[in-house]
Write a protein that binds this DNA or RNA. Structure first.
Lengths: 179, 179
DNA sequence: ACCCACATGTAAGGAGTTACATGATTAC
DNA sequence: GTAATCATGTAACTCCTTACATGTGGGT
């Protein structure tokens, strides 16, 4: 279960990063799929360093700022990540508040629900636009289609995001028609 | 934030239920969207009873078994649920392990990843079949299309599930082609 | 004046998982 | 005899969210 550590390793397998970098990438690149707060990143990095999954590559100091600690993945970390990647797990629960709210739509006035649906739809349209831009950016970076290129893997995942947002938007439209 | 209490109220708004009933319904009807364990259900029911959102409708005793406590929603509970339903919230994070694993596919041998993808695809196909059966069952129960019928709301949510599983399966197939 | 970006971290608490405890009954 | 179903509940634990704390420079 404990997947946050694999989320960190996933990013570190590609390039050395600081805790702050990881936090930023989580909230943009694989953004809406995974999120972490600083409270989880820093203690987890320490733990993982203690277990030999990552090591401190070096530190940087820019003027007045706190020391920036760059971590890199170790061979043991890479192996642990590969093992986890091939491990099988159960299907996840979706756990989306709005699905529950839709389940309650029979309780409220149709016009009030419609306003709510429109709002949710708008949020997902914004995400869709961000994903589409991301895929275009990534595709430009990838010259040859190669399944061993990390960028190709990233594109696949973001494409899932695009399909998901499209489905969500279409579903919202179907709900609006029913009201 | 997204608290379990509204999930309980959502079910109780439709019919009086015991904690055990709620647990069962969570793991079948709105199943893979939400889940609860008994550790959460029973304390939360007590809390909600104390706050006047639900009340004990009565108890049943079948032979040797523990007393079955049936709860029903109160007017205050209904109002709280309606308010929450119309409240706006942010978009949720998807948080699916397999998306992270796919993000790591560049690290592993294509044939090993393919086996993993096939396995995941199979799990989602099983879910899809369950949802399709559920929708058919619900549609048969609904005679007139009416947006104030709770069954209509349920169908909408399960239809989301169907679309989601289909998208997941198609995405798996696309991954397999890329390998 | 005030907030944001940078970069590390801690604290408090709520949410969620896994396992356990009771105890008779039915099914393999 | 082993497990599952019914029905309640507790215990121990991990995970995740929200907020705080530090401290300077740059933008509005």
């Amino acid at each position: 279960m404990s997947s946050i550590r694999y989320a960190l390793l996933t990013l570190l397998a590609r390039e050395p990063l600081s805790g702050y970098d990881i936090k930023l990438q989580m909230n943009s690149r694989i953004g809406p799929f995974w999120k972490v707060g600083s409270n989880q990143v820093y203690p987890e990095l320490s733990k993982m360093e203690g277990e030999g999954l990552i090591r401190l590559q070096g530190t940087e100091q820019h003027a007045y700022r706190p020391v920036r600690k760059l971590y890199e993945i170790t061979e043991a970390g890479r192996e642990a990540l590969i093992q986890w990647t091939l491990e099988r797990g159960g299907v996840e629960t979706v756990r989306d508040d709005f699905l529950l709210k839709a389940y309650n739509s029979w309780l409220v006035k149709p016009e009030e629900m419609a306003a709510q649906i429109e709002e949710v739809k708008k949020q997902h349209e914004e995400r869709l636009a961000a994903y589409v831009a991301k895929v275009e950016e990534l595709t430009a970076m990838l010259d040859a289609p190669d399944s061993h290129d990390p960028i190709a893997s990233t594109i696949s995942v973001v494409e899932f995001g695009i399909q998901y947002e499209r489905l969500y938007i279409e579903w919202c439209e179907k709900l609006l028609k029913k009201e």
